[in-house]
Amino acid sequence: MEAGEVIMERTRAHPDFHAVVLLNQEIRKIVGIAGGVYLSAMNAMLIAKRAGDSARGFSVVSRELQRFSNRLQDAMHLLNTRIFRLLMQVAELKKRERMHGHHIRAARAGERARDHLGRLLADQEAEIGQAGAEIGEAVSRLMTEIERAGTLCEMSIALSRAAKIEAVYGGERATALRQVAEGVETTIAEIITTLKGLNERLTGTGT
């Protein structure tokens, strides 16, 4: 089953939308952690500048790190936008389902009522189906963004390792440089783990 279908199945199967709310919470957590990478990259630039010539290699790597952290911020912004929209769509679907529920109950109350409401019920079902399909598509798009962010982070792991190596040549600032590089590496690793967790949740293997 496609990831999108799993969430879709879930939102249909459950009368609540906790799955999407939890997803939103986790994405917000990642966005928060990613903000830390940005700050670390800034810090790395500053220390490299202070270390001067002895840290030229580190300075080059840290510039790359900063470029990466900018891209990561963009990716996070996109994730945020997507999950916000998805949440709206799911809440809207819940609203429709509730209205539909009221009309179903009315239709069950008698044959006449059923005659009058038959057309409406069919239309509502079609609309709910359509909204469900759109939610499925939105989830797929979200998945793609999550994967993209993951790939971006995987690539940058090499970068933070290079920073660690360059830190060795940082003279008296070597320790400070190494700490920054390690900080970035840990943070990226944390993002990768969380993203993987998200992926598993979305494909249904994690829950």
């Binding site: 906790h18 709310v21 917000r28 945020n80 949440l87 769509q89 809440a91 609203k95 509730r98």
Partner: peptide, 19 residues
Amino acid sequence: GIEIFPAVFAAISAEFDPA
């Protein structure tokens, strides 16, 4: 109101855990 529920719920969730 019921009509604005999706907007309210999404706006809260963007900053805060509605649970």
